[in-house]
Amino acid sequence: MPRSPLALLDNCHRVETPEGIDLVLKPAGLVPRALAFAIDLVLRAAILLVLGSLLAMLGQFGAGFGAILLFVVQWWYMVLFEVLNQGRTPGKQWLGLRVVHDDGTPVGWGASLVRNLLRFVDLLPFGYLFGALSCLAHPSFKRLGDIAAGTLVVHRERPAAPPALPEVAPEAAPVRLTLDEQRALIAFSERHAGLSAARREELAGILAAPLGTPPALAERRLHAIARGLLGQA
């Protein structure tokens, strides 16, 4: 069977800035979003329960205030959190998600209001049927509200401390390396702790011959080159 000429499947949404820089956003799919929603749902229920029972003791004032509270929690919880907390409701924060515009800019009042008001279209006819189907079928996992508002739920990049490289004397790379190749070399060094010794040897063995190193020393040599690439003395 001939290979299909399709592009490699990847979970990226590329945005090109006017300066010609590619921003890579990672849209978030149905499963993490559903979990985030569930967390928010539980949180909202808890807020209403606690404050509602407190307000119930305050008579008429409590009843009136409770009605306002219900309105605010029901309609503004998502919007306020999204706009004022960098696109993250508590549930989304927990799951490492955030809402942005299609072009990657922070979500604003208009877009957030639209996507959360249209939540009630996604709810139809019951239990988020339309929203779930739209989320499964859209390449960037948008529900109907997201399509209308031009927003995107993306995975947040979490800053990670760079892992320690093995302690070897740095060495200059013997050949000119492309960016991808440099990255692969550095990744090999950074992730060596998570790989089994046999696997490390096998991987390093691939490059032993071109480097002109005996296979047994290849791994050490690669670590040295990676350190050299990172400029770590």
């Binding site: 290979r3 299909s4 399709l6 490699l8 499947l9 990847d10 979970n11 990226c12 990672k26 849209p27 978030a28 799919g29 149905l30 499963v31 993490p32 799951l95 490492g96 499964l136 079928a137 390449p139 996992f141 995975h155 979490r158 992730r191």
Partner: peptide, 25 residues
């Protein structure tokens, strides 16, 4: 080298999303 996926280690939720895309394709 024949894989039709972009192979790289991902955070688990992103891997899960990739599954949705795979099923979609």
């Amino acid at each position: 080298s024949d894989a039709s996926l972009a192979i790289r280690p991902r955070p688990p939720w992103e891997a899960c999303d990739l599954g949705v895309l795979l099923a979609r394709r």
